[in-house]
Amino acid sequence: TEYKLVVVGAGGVGKSALTIQLIQNHFVDEYDPTIEDSYRKQVVIDGETCLLDILDTAGQEEYSAMRDQYMRTGEGFLCVFAINNTKSFEDIHQYREQIKRVKDSDDVPMVLVGNKCDLAARTVESRQAQDLARSYGIPYIETSAKTRQGVEDAFYTLVREIRQH
């Protein structure tokens, strides 16, 4: 089974770092803004072998026109913010609204991801993020692309959301 996953969120929150940590098991430290990259990885989730087709997208506003296209083809979405960047957390709402509009559905598989949880300088409390996820009816997972904490959990949870859909 193949799953088309799309990673969305503001610029600099760590979308590529999360994806590369999942696929290649290493942490990319330097920031190089993405336009669009796709990665494929075969994994076993709950005993089922599946192929993850992951689209890593641009957070930069100037590429926002490309969003409709990949939102149409994606089956599930990782909505990523950084726990030390309140603005990126506030941006999640717009991504969710755009996904709902493009998919013409209120019920699209999504996982809210709070990345950079290895950093002490948190400005978005776990509780705020949990409340937001609960209001959307989606899971919330904290990750660190640096330490790998929660990385597999985030992507695998999204696959489970798609399966249950």
Rank of each mutant, 00 (worst) to 15 (best):
D118W: 01
D46A: 13
F155M: 13
R72I: 03
I54D: 02
D46F: 10
D104E: 14
L55M: 11
L52N: 01
I20W: 09
T147C: 14
G114K: 00
Q98E: 15
V111D: 00
L112V: 09
Q69G: 09
I54S: 05
G14A: 01
P33N: 05
Q42T: 13
S64F: 07
G74V: 04
P109M: 07
Q149Y: 02
V13P: 07
I20P: 01
V102A: 08
L119A: 14
F155S: 00
Q94C: 14
D56A: 01
Y39C: 10
E62W: 15
G114A: 13
L52K: 03
Y63G: 12
K4D: 05
Q21G: 13
Q60V: 15
V159H: 01
H26L: 14
V102E: 15
F155Y: 11
R96Q: 03
S16R: 00
I23H: 10
E97I: 04
D153V: 09
Q24G: 15
A145H: 02
V102H: 00
N115G: 07
L132F: 09
R148L: 13
Q130I: 14
F89E: 07
A120E: 12
P33R: 11
S105Q: 11
D53V: 00
Q149H: 13
E161S: 10
V13F: 00
A17N: 02
D56M: 02
V111N: 00
R101E: 02
Q94S: 13
A154S: 08
V124G: 05
M110N: 00
T49F: 07
Q128W: 15
L5Y: 04
Q69V: 02
M110I: 10
D56V: 00
F27M: 04
V111S: 01
A145I: 00
K4S: 11
F89C: 02
Q94H: 15
Q164L: 04
Q42C: 09
N85Y: 06
Q130K: 05
K116H: 15
R127M: 14
T19I: 08
Y3H: 15
G137V: 04
V102I: 10
L132V: 09
L112C: 05
M66L: 15
G114R: 00
L18I: 04
R160S: 09
A65V: 10
R101F: 06
Q149G: 10
T86L: 13
E62D: 13
E61Y: 15
E97H: 09
D118R: 00
E61Q: 14
M66W: 02
R160D: 04
H93S: 14
F77A: 00
L78M: 14
A65P: 05
V80M: 15
E36H: 05
F27C: 04
I138S: 04
R40W: 06
N84V: 05
T57P: 02
I54N: 01
I23E: 09
G59T: 02
V8Y: 03
K4W: 03
R134Y: 13
V7A: 08
I23A: 10
G59N: 00
K41A: 09
G76A: 15
N25E: 10
D46T: 09
T1R: 12
T123C: 09
S64I: 15
G76N: 00
E36I: 04
V80G: 00
D56P: 01
S16Y: 00
Q164P: 07
G150F: 07
V159C: 10
G59H: 03
V13N: 05
F89H: 10
H165S: 15
R160G: 07
E30L: 08
L78A: 05
A120R: 11
A10Q: 01
N84H: 14
Y140Q: 03
L55K: 01
I83W: 09
R96N: 13
M110E: 00
V7Q: 01
E36Y: 10
K146C: 13
G76C: 10
G11Q: 08
V124P: 08
T49G: 12
K41S: 12
A65F: 01
L132M: 15
F77Q: 00
Y140E: 00
P33W: 03
N25A: 14
P139S: 08
L18V: 10
V43D: 10
E30Q: 11
R40D: 01
L51V: 14
Y140D: 03
Q130L: 10
Q94N: 15
S38N: 03
A65H: 07
Y39K: 02
Y3D: 00
V7P: 02
T86Y: 04
S64C: 14
Q94M: 09
Y3T: 09
V159Y: 03
N25H: 12
K146I: 15
T57R: 02
M71I: 06
S126W: 05
Q98M: 15
Q149C: 13
I92P: 02
L5P: 02
I92W: 07
A65C: 11
Y3Q: 04
D56G: 00
V80D: 00
A120V: 07
D91W: 10
Q128R: 08
Y63S: 14
D153W: 02
T143M: 10
Y95G: 05
R160V: 08
M110W: 07
K15G: 01
L51D: 14
M71K: 07
E125I: 15
R134E: 05
R96C: 13
D107P: 10
L119T: 13
A17T: 06
I92A: 06
G74D: 02
D107Y: 07
E142M: 09
Q128V: 13
Y31P: 02
D68T: 03
K41N: 14
L132I: 12
V8E: 02
T57W: 03
V28H: 09
I141P: 01
E62C: 11
I45V: 13
V44C: 09
R127E: 06
Y3I: 07
D131T: 03
I92H: 00
Y3E: 07
E161T: 06
D104F: 11
K103G: 03
V8N: 02
I45D: 05
E62K: 15
G12Q: 11
D91K: 15
A58Y: 02
D104R: 12
Q24P: 03
G12D: 15
V80Y: 01
V28Y: 10
R134D: 11
F89D: 04
